[in-house]
Simulated assay, not measured.
Amino acid sequence: MKKSALVLIAMLLPATSVLAMDARFAASLKKLDPQTRLEQVCDLEAMSRIARDAKLYRPDRAKTDVLSHPLHAGHTVTGKGGAFRSKGRWYSFSFTCKGTPDHMKVLSFSYKIGEPIPESKWAALGLWR
């Protein structure tokens, strides 16, 4: 299953189902290679944390690999090139995300929100409205 397809599946699930690890979503995650699986759970964690912590954002999409590819070290992925969409605008973010050994859940997640990404750059970065 392609990463973009899995993100779409995850976004269609209710937030409570995602947090409780819906069985269909878990089955889809298990089909991915471990690095991609970790990025997917970190994408979901980014949306959850940003929505909870930074009240002026309402993320509905997050990608850890928009501006640059994240670095993997064991069960941890770090990046300076993530992006999330909130209210029709994209913002950059950096993050560190540590997952469980099976890369099915996030143990710790920290992030820093960066600047808005100009709409003129969205197409080149694979972003959409």
Score class of each variant (00 low, 15 high):
3 K>R: 15
4 S>N: 15
4 S>P: 00
5 A>S: 07
6 L>V: 10
7 V>S: 11
8 L>D: 14
11 M>R: 15
11 M>L: 13
11 M>K: 15
11 M>W: 04
11 M>A: 14
12 L>G: 15
14 P>T: 04
15 A>E: 11
15 A>N: 12
16 T>H: 10
17 S>Q: 15
18 V>S: 03
18 V>T: 13
19 L>V: 12
20 A>Q: 11
21 M>S: 11
21 M>C: 04
23 A>P: 05
25 F>H: 11
25 F>K: 05
29 L>Y: 05
33 D>H: 10
34 P>W: 01
35 Q>M: 11
35 Q>L: 07
37 R>A: 03
37 R>N: 13
38 L>S: 03
38 L>F: 02
38 L>E: 06
42 C>F: 01
43 D>Y: 01
45 E>F: 03
46 A>C: 13
46 A>Y: 04
46 A>G: 04
49 R>L: 12
51 A>N: 03
51 A>K: 00
52 R>S: 14
53 D>Y: 13
53 D>I: 13
54 A>T: 04
54 A>M: 03
54 A>P: 04
57 Y>W: 00
57 Y>S: 02
59 P>A: 06
60 D>L: 05
61 R>G: 04
61 R>N: 06
61 R>D: 00
61 R>Q: 10
64 T>F: 06
64 T>Y: 07
64 T>H: 05
66 V>E: 00
67 L>E: 02
69 H>K: 12
70 P>K: 08
70 P>Q: 11
72 H>S: 08
72 H>G: 05
73 A>N: 00
77 V>M: 01
78 T>F: 00
79 G>L: 02
79 G>N: 01
81 G>D: 02
84 F>C: 07
85 R>N: 01
85 R>T: 04
86 S>G: 14
88 G>L: 10
88 G>K: 06
89 R>L: 14
90 W>M: 11
92 S>E: 13
92 S>I: 11
93 F>G: 07
93 F>K: 05
94 S>A: 15
94 S>N: 12
96 T>E: 12
96 T>N: 12
97 C>Q: 06
98 K>Y: 05
100 T>A: 08
101 P>S: 09
102 D>E: 12
104 M>L: 10
105 K>I: 03
106 V>Y: 06
106 V>G: 03
106 V>Q: 00
107 L>I: 09
108 S>T: 15
108 S>F: 10
108 S>H: 11
108 S>Q: 11
111 Y>E: 01
112 K>V: 12
113 I>Y: 08
114 G>I: 02
114 G>M: 06
115 E>I: 01
116 P>F: 03
116 P>E: 04
117 I>K: 04
117 I>N: 05
118 P>S: 12
120 S>I: 14
121 K>I: 05
